[in-house]
Amino acid sequence: MSSIKIELRQEDIEKIREICGSFGKDPQELINVLHKCQEHFGYLPAEVQEVVSNELDVPVAKIYGVVTFYSFFTMTPKGRHPISICMGTACYVRGAEKVLDEFKKELGLQVGQTSKDGKFSLSSLRCVGACGLAPVVLVGDKTYGRVAPDDVRNILKEYE
């Protein structure tokens, strides 16, 4: 496996430095820094982790360890319309898995993947606090309740 080259635009480097600076470059704030970085970039590519490593003086292996441990962090860019299927208990017992399978089939994606055109990305999460609407699907900021596998195609059509 070849070595990863750290290549970033100047403004991106400045942004990461600004985020690290806002937390006083404190290594204890690593998770908060990563949250902010992911908020800004949409994901946490190796290059971003390398710059954070430099700024906070934390080994990049440690940062990668944190990024791969917490399922919230991702190293793949999210699609323009990120789709999340709730797999919390209530949604699960009301058939969320079948809904997820339908999304997988329709999009040809696995959980954690992004479509080649960058339009959709697929993820699952645990409980969005809307159990009364179970099973719940989020596309971007929009919430869909009581989703059945048959609804999946129509939901996707809204984003064509």
Partner: peptide, 26 residues
């Protein structure tokens, strides 16, 4: 040295260099 860290979770967990590159690139 900070070359190795625990990464991933569950059965996928391992002790590895950043981005699971080879040791040579750490």
């Amino acid at each position: 040295v900070g070359a190795l860290s625990a990464v991933n979770r569950g059965f996928m967990s391992a002790v590895a260099p950043a981005f699971e590159q080879n040791l040579e690139h750490s």
